[in-house]
């Protein structure tokens, strides 16, 4: 069941600009009417893409220049709103699969869902986010590399530091982001903790 390790993610990148991009935009609710995650990928950003298309514009995800991207570049508070894990589950199924996200900040539940899905979210400052977004917009063929060992993101010849909490970083690097196995290990302690909490014991009645 153990997943592969996530140490260095590299490849082309796709820039999706904007603050506060919520999970309804990443995967609209109507596509959640399913009992599996398969098939979500093609609906990533569906409404945003359709809307731009109708206006004669092209969403970066539809832009052939960014086809095959592995890294998603974003701005601030990415993934806010609904807790749906379907959002990262869609992104890892988009095209060749988006395997890392670099942005100024991430909503908390989204970040956790990305850990569960094996997608490192690297946090950079606003200037770095801008530099990365513009660099890739200018040269879509640029290789972007997210290196968890050194906590640097490299785009062409430029390198920038990013931050990621130590816990998830280690989980990615050791291939241990599947939490269930780890949590199961403490089964006895779970029972012992429950035994000490009054409501777990119906307040002694």
């Amino acid at each position: 069941m153990q997943d592969v390790k996530r140490i260095v993610i590299k490849g082309r990148a796709v820039p999706v600009r904007g603050n506060d991009i919520d999970t309804d935009r990443i995967i609209p609710a109507r596509f959640l009417k399913t009992v599996v995650f398969d098939g979500l990928g093609e609906h990533s950003f569906e409404d945003d893409r359709a809307q731009l298309k109708a206006a004669g514009k092209t969403h970066p995800l539809d832009d052939a220049r960014f086809a095959g991207a592995r890294v998603l570049l974003v701005n601030r508070n990415f993934g806010c709103g609904a807790s749906r894990e379907h959002a990262p589950q869609a992104l890892i199924r988009w095209g060749q699969g988006l395997q890392a996200i670099v942005g100024e900040s991430f909503a908390e539940i989204f970040f956790g869902n990305c850990v569960a899905t094996g997608v490192p979210c690297a946090v950079v400052d606003a200037a770095t986010a801008e530099a990365l977004l513009s660099a890739v917009e200018k040269d879509p063929a640029l290789e972007v590399q997210v290196d968890l060992r050194t906590k640097t993101v490299t785009a062409g010849s430029a390198s920038y530091p990013f931050s990621i909490p130590d816990g998830p970083r280690t989980q990615f690097m050791e291939g241990r982001w599947d939490s269930t196995a780890e949590l199961l290990a403490a089964k006895d302690k779970v029972r012992a903790t429950a035994a000490k909490i009054p409501y777990f014991n119906s307040y002694g009645s």
Binding site: G112, N113, D178, E182, A194
Partner: peptide, 20 residues
């Protein structure tokens, strides 16, 4: 706490969550 689907799995299997 609102949680994602993998965490729903965790709670079902272990009655616990990994949390900061």
């Amino acid at each position: 706490l609102g949680i994602g689907t993998s965490q729903v799995r965790d709670v079902l299997a272990t009655q616990t969550l990994a949390m900061d």
